[in-house]
Structure formats: C-alpha cells, structure tokens
Nucleic acid binder design. Structure first.
Length: 593
RNA sequence: GCCCUCGUAGCUCAGGGGAUAGAGCACCGGUUUCCUAAACCGGGUGUCGGAGGUUCGAAUCCUCCCGAGGGCGCCA
C-alpha cells in the first residue's frame, strides 16, 4: 500500500483502487484487472469517491447486477481503505476512509519529491530520446499570433516529455526558403546598404519594416517584383555568394527577433534547422525513393512523385523545374534528425490540416526501407479563431505574438495595480500573470479541437484561467507565510490522519488526480488533461479556504496546533501540486499577486 | 469527387459504452470586523445536427444523410 511512486508516477488513488479491485476480484473469483477497469468516478460527487458498474460482472454469473453490487458492498466494507460502501441498484458507490486516503496521498506526495518533476513526473521515457519539432515560424517575419498555439503547446509537451523521463531535443523548423526570402533578397538589393546597419547586421525591427515594404512593392508591381524575386531565389539555389550572404543576414535577424519573443514566454530551442538546409539532400532523398521503387518520375514533366498508396495522399518530391518541395525537404529533415539524434520518436507539432501530408511522407520513407520513420508522429492541433475568423489575420493584418503578450501583461498590470497591496515587484507579477494567462489559454482546450480565442476571456482572471490557478497558489503561500513556515517544511510535518473533513477529502482527491492527469496528458500528447487536473486542485482548495471564512473551525490556522500542522501540510501539498503542474505549462507561480 | 477534424446550454468548451449529460462565461441573488472577494455559495437552462443499427445499456461504437472548417502530384 505504500508504493505509490511507480514507473507511471504519482497515483495514490490508483494504489487504493488497485487494492480494492484485488479484494473485489478475489471475492468474485475473477481477475483484478477486469475489476479495476470498471472502477471510475461516479456520475456525481455526492454519490461517492469511486464507483463500479456491476453489469459486466454479472455476465456468466447467476447473480444479477444489483445482487453483485450488494455482495461487493459487503466485501468492500471490510477493507480498511473503505469508509462507506453502498449498493445503489446495479452500482456500487463507495467512499475512501478519509484518514487512509489522506495518509496515502500525502505520503505518496512526499515520495514523489524524489523525482525532478515532482508529482507530475514519471519514468516511462527513461533511456529514450524524443525529438519535438514545434512553432515553425517563417523567416523575415516576427512570430505571429497564429503561431501561439503550436508554440505554447509544443513547449508544454517538451517539458512534459522531460518530466516523464525522455531525453528531449527541441527543434524549430524555420521557414527560411521560398517566397518570403526571395522577396527580401530583392528588397535588400534595391535598398542597398540602407538595408543594413553597423557591421552589416540587420536589426529585427529593420527587417520587419523591410518585409512590410517588400510586400507593398509586390502588391503595386506584382510582375516586376515577382520576376526579380524569382531570379534571386535561383541565385540562392545556385549558391551565389551574394545571395547566400544576404540570406544569412535575414536569417540572423529573424532568429534574433524570434529568440526575444520566445524568451518572454520562457521557451527555448536546442536548434533552428531551416528548410533551406535541405535544398540538396531533398533531391538525394528523392533519388533514393525512386531507386527503392517508392517514387516515380513523371513521364510528362519530369517531376518526381509518390503515387497514392495505402490510403495516403500522393506527394510531389521534385517539381518540373527540378526544385525540392515541402515534402522532400521534410523527408530529408527526418533522415538527418534520425542520423543526428538517433531518436526513438520524432514528434511534429503542427496544425491538424497537415496530418495527411506528414503521414504520406513518413509512410513513403518506411516503404523505402527507413523503418525508423514509423516512429515519426504528426501531432496536430486545431485552429484558433478570432471572432469566428481564422486567427491568421485580424482586420487584414497579421497580429504579432508580442502584441498579444503585451496586451495581456498590460491588463494584468492594471488588475495588480487595483489591489495596491504591498507587492514588492508589481511589474514582474504582472508579467507572470499575463504570460501565464496566455500560455494557459492555449493549453486548456483539447488539442485537436478548434477554438475561439478571446483575449478578454484569457486575461479575465476568473473562470478556467491560468491566473485563477496562480491565485490559489498565492493564497496558500500567504497562509504558509503567516504561519511562519515554509512549503518544504510543512510538507513533511503534521499528521495526515487528522484530515478527515469532507472539504479536506475533496482537496486530497484533487491532489491525487494530478498525477493521473499528467500521465494522461503525456499518453495523449495533450497538455489540456493536465490543465483539468490543476483546475481541480484550485477549485477544491478555493472552496475549502473559503469555507474557513464562514466556519472558523475549518481554518487552516487552527487554534489546535496539531490540527494546524496537519492542515498546513495539506496546504503545502496543494501548493506543490499546482506549482509542479503549472511549471510544465511554462506558467510561473508567484508567491503573492 | 475523395480524405481528415468536427456538430453537446445563449456563448466558450468537457464528457475513456453505464446512473438524473456536466463545467466556465454571461445573467440574478447572497457571503468581506475573516488564512488574499482575481474567490466562494445558491439560482436554470438541453430534439446531445437528423435517421437507422449494434448492445441489458449509446452523446460515446457502426452505416447513411444534413451542416461547418481543413486537406487532396508540381505554392510554401
């Protein structure tokens, strides 16, 4: 009963359930697995902490489901971990013995501190390397608002994978090839030295201005600019030194700009690997796929393509004009990644619409003998809408990610200023809250679902938001401070067996649920499940703490010193659960706000 | 035409074959001599897009239809 920290991580309630399932299974002479699979939360919390539907257990038995439920109620009632067991028709509802639950949860939580990621950690990934490719911005442009979801979710997944024991390589597949670049090469040519500053470098701001001008040029003189740009792209393809030199200026300015934005969000990459890097290797891959009989050369135009196969769409590897394509460059990139990192899995986080394309590329590689390509996974996310429209533009222009973050921080600052408490550093709190609001808003929706983004909602500090969860942490921190103790000290002090009030049980169950929520998020490549778990703790804690307003007997800082220590331990546990979970999402937890 | 994602409360979204389908927002009321009222408590909403089918049991699985968005060999 005291081995809650397993390979699958912190799951004290699972430990209790396992013991219960074993006892029930023994009574029915069936295997524990099949009983454990039927255990789940009841429809409504008033019914109990855990329930079991007995219909399936009645199969192949003389007894009816209600009879089974009745019988199991008797067996369950004998368990030390069970406080109450009641058969309701074909269902068995039961409550854990509160003290047993408290001891199990809080002991497990202390044990989980041994893991670097705490209670959201696990060891499933030990000894394996995963590559994750996310954000994928374009050169010559600042990070746009439409990159927010992939960036926030990707960073969260990378941290989650690390928490689960994987070695992680974060890659940013920069769109440093094609039209945008061509346009800017031409622009740099026409503006000459005016385009560059001291030392020849281009500042991100200058680059952005040039990009806007270049697009205006194209709009007003499409034919002329189009021809000139295309010529520059050819020079670049041919390895022309001037073209390469300018290309480098553009990419350097881009990454400088991107890094600044990522830094605000607490995100970093191990490497940028732009598409242009695969200009030649893409053509080599194409040849290999032809040689393997996977790709064909089109008799009409000389292009190279992979015909539709096994339900996958057709993909073009080389165009009629002999240029690589998105698909062949992706194939080349995958091969390079496997060579460089020897990954066990390579995750591509992009919008869901690209799933078919990636699947076709990976399948073609597998058919050509690159068996490892079966461990390349496209993980897609739904589209963000703004006022019912695609997030890419608003009022006809690209909304930059920086603008959104600025606005979020501004609103957070206004809120913080309103409660001019003795905050030592209101600006840093506003930043933590603003950034937290933005990141959390991106992670909380189920990954594949489209969702309507509303900055007002995200930054509104109530409801299902990051700030509300941060607030729960801050309130606990405040209590601990008032008690003159620290989180770490409180966590191992006090007797859990005293935490038997229903409001306390609710907090304990919520804390216990965070581990499984992290595991599920990990298994589904979807941080939203973790968000659910954190929200549960914040809800339960807020409810508990507010109950203490009306009923002084429920105060954490009880007159009874023994009870007080136990409750401080519960508070610390809730705080740790929230903090560990938010950390995975990239959201910090200020001590005061 | 084919493929993918989806359709659940006024809005934004959860629902891992099981009970009376749930949260948040918005709206209305209540709770601050109090451990932070950015909170909490209470108040009510549903042809689960439609029709069949499988099942003891379907929002959930299968088929068809309707509707939305996205993708579908030479753009990135």
């Amino acid at each position: 009963m005291t081995t809650p920290t397993t390979r699958a991580g912190f799951d004290p309630v699972g430990t209790l359930e396992g013991g219960l399932a074993a006892a029930l299974a023994a009574a029915l002479e069936v295997d524990a697995e099949s009983v454990a699979a039927l255990l789940g939360p009841p429809r409504r919390p008033e019914m109990g902490d855990v329930a079991i539907a007995c219909h399936r257990l009645a199969r192949g038995s003389d007894a009816s489901p209600p009879e089974i439920a009745q019988r199991l109620a008797g067996v369950a009632g004998q368990q030390a971990s069970v406080g109450a067991a009641e058969a309701t028709g074909p269902f068995l509802n039961l409550r854990w013995e509160p003290a047993a639950l408290a001891v199990t949860v809080l002991d497990a939580l202390v044990e989980s501190r041994a893991h670097p990621a705490g209670l959201v950690g696990g060891d499933e990934g030990a000894g394996t390397t995963w590559v994750i490719d996310f954000s994928s911005p374009n050169a010559a442009r600042t990070l746009g608002f439409h990159h927010l979801r992939g960036t926030a979710v990707g960073a969260a997944l990378a941290r989650l994978y690390e928490a689960r024991g994987h070695q992680i390589v974060r890659l940013n597949h920069l769109g440093d090839y094609g039209h945008n670049i061509a346009l800017l090469l031409h622009k740099l040519d026409t503006t000459g030295a005016a385009g560059t500053g001291a030392g020849g470098a281009i500042s991100p701001q200058r680059l952005q201005a040039l990009y806007v001008e270049a697009n205006e040029d194209e709009a007003s003189h499409p034919d002329e600019v189009g021809r000139a740009s295309a010529a520059w792209l050819e020079r670049l393809d041919a390895g022309d030194p001037t073209a390469l030199e300018r290309w480098e200026l553009i990419v350097d300015a881009t990454t400088a700009s991107l890094d600044a934005t990522y830094a605000r969000l607490g995100i970093h990459f191990d490497e940028y690997r732009g598409e242009s890097r695969y200009r030649e290797s893409a053509l080599e891959v194409s040849e290999k796929l032809v040689a393997a009989g996977v790709a064909e050369v089109d008799t009409d135009g000389g292009s190279v393509f992979v015909p539709p196969a096994d339900g996958h769409q057709a993909i073009v590897l080389v165009t009629k004009r002999g240029a690589s394509t998105y698909e062949s460059r992706d194939a080349a990139a995958a091969i390079e990644r496997h060579r460089d990192f020897d990954f066990d899995r390579c995750v591509y986080l992009t919008d869901i619409g690209q799933g078919g394309r990636f699947a076709a590329v990976f399948a073609a590689l597998v058919r050509a003998g690159y068996d490892w390509a079966a461990s390349c996974d496209h993980v897609g996310f739904g589209q963000m809408r703004l006022g019912g429209q695609k997030a890419k533009t608003r009022e006809g222009r690209v909304v930059s990610l920086d603008e959104v973050v600025d606005e979020a921080i501004e609103r957070a600052a206004a809120q913080v200023a309103e409660r001019t408490d003795e905050l030592a550093d209101p600006a840093s709190v506003a930043e933590a809250v603003g950034v937290g609001a933005v990141l959390f808003s991106q992670c909380r929706m189920r990954r594949p679902a489209d969702f309507e983004f509303d900055l007002d909602d995200a930054v509104q500090f109530k409801g299902e938001t990051g700030p509300r969860i941060q607030y729960a942490y801050a309130r606990i921190a405040s209590i601990l401070a008032k008690a003159g103790t620290t989180l770490d000290a409180a966590l191992t002090d006090g007797d859990p067996a005293l935490l038997v009030h229903p409001a306390e049980t609710r907090v304990l169950l919520a804390i216990g649920a965070v581990g499984p929520s992290a595991r599920r998020a990990y298994e589904a490549d979807d941080p939203s499940y973790l968000c659910d778990g954190l929200r549960g703790v914040a809800d339960a804690w807020a409810s508990y703490q507010n109950a203490g307003r009306d009923d002084t007997a429920l105060r954490v800082l009880s007159e009874d010193q023994t009870l007080r220590r136990a409750r401080l331990r519960l508070a610390a546990a809730a705080a740790v659960a929230v903090r560990d979970g938010l950390a995975v999402l990239g959201v910090s937890a200020p001590e005061r706000m």
